[in-house]
């Protein structure tokens, strides 16, 4: 039942992505609504799958590559629905749904074989650390999507091409502000993920940092977003630079995450 609801979710996400994709080229009233409805249906099935796995595993379902990627996608769609509900931004779905769908699709082909948890991992830190890590990553994913929208819109305004997407994308200021707001949510959560991870590592293995690839990449990501966060406050870095950095920051998360899923060594083993 868990696997079936995951497949159904994947199917609805696919429909949502197609609707959102065609919405880019042909503006209609139906397509964005259809995309949103498909995401809601997909998300309900996805949630069923997550809850089911949670009970089956007895802990947060992120202990194999399939579950972890799927949970990541679930967080992205959760934030997408919240964002769409509160801001109703034109074309948001066309930029965010592909990210969520790609994660779900990758998750569907990854191994779902779970090894029993080692005693070190069997800890309440597992839930705390991973919740912060995944929610912050999802916030960064959405910030990157918004940043991409910003860059597209900025391109239109600067090059004075005012047809097509220009009409339908929100204003630059709005895109910039919401992207930044997502970072102000993501960055503290990400910091908490790193802190909780270090404390946990110290408790379990006796050292805060063991220079695993994901730890290194996480520190890089943290530094990038720290730059975005603080340069805005101090020097007013916003707009294009902030957008580009947000996208790079998200890319480092994906690299870290991919390394984690593929390498399968160290403390972050599945």
């Amino acid at each position: 039942m868990g696997a079936l609801s995951f497949q159904i979710a994947l199917f609805f996400y696919l429909l949502a992505m197609l609707a959102a994709f065609f919405d880019l080229f042909k503006s209609t009233k139906v397509l964005p609504k259809a995309a949103y409805m498909f995401v809601i249906v997909g998300f309900l099935f996805h949630t069923t799958n997550v809850v089911y796995s949670w009970f089956a595993d007895g802990h947060i379902p992120i202990v194999n590559a399939h579950e972890a990627t799927s949970f990541f996608a679930w967080c992205v769609f959760l934030l997408f629905l919240l964002l769409e509900y509160s801001y109703k931004l034109g074309l948001l779905g066309s930029f965010i749904i592909p990210i969520g769908f790609a994660l779900t699709l990758v998750s569907s082909v990854l191994s779902s074989a779970s090894k029993p948890l080692t005693p070190q991992l069997r800890s309440y830190w597992l839930g705390i650390h991973t919740f912060f890590a995944f929610m912050s990553s999802a916030a960064f994913a959405l910030a990157a999507g918004m940043a991409l929208m910003y860059l597209v819109q900025e391109h239109h305004v600067k090059r004075k091409r005012l047809g097509g997407l220009f009409e339908r994308l929100p204003s630059l200021q709005r895109l910039d502000e919401i992207s930044y707001r997502l970072i102000t949510i993501g960055f503290p959560l990400f910091t908490l993920a790193i802190i909780s991870g270090s404390i946990w590592a110290d408790n379990a293995w006796g050292s805060y940092l063991s220079w695993e690839p994901i730890q290194v990449w996480s520190i890089i990501t943290w530094l990038i977003f720290a730059v975005v966060f603080h340069s805005r406050l101090l020097a007013g870095w916003r707009g294009r630079r902030a957008a580009v950095l947000s996208i790079i920051g998200f890319a480092t998360i994906i690299i870290a995450f991919a390394g984690l899923a593929l390498l399968q060594k160290g403390q972050h083993i599945f």
């Binding site: 819109q153 305004v157 005012l162 220009f166 994308l169 929100p170 204003s171 630059l172 200021q173 709005r174 502000e177």
Partner: peptide, 8 residues
């Protein structure tokens, strides 16, 4: 109109 696409 343009200003409205730069500022919300």
């Amino acid at each position: 109109e343009l200003a409205k696409k730069i500022f919300t």
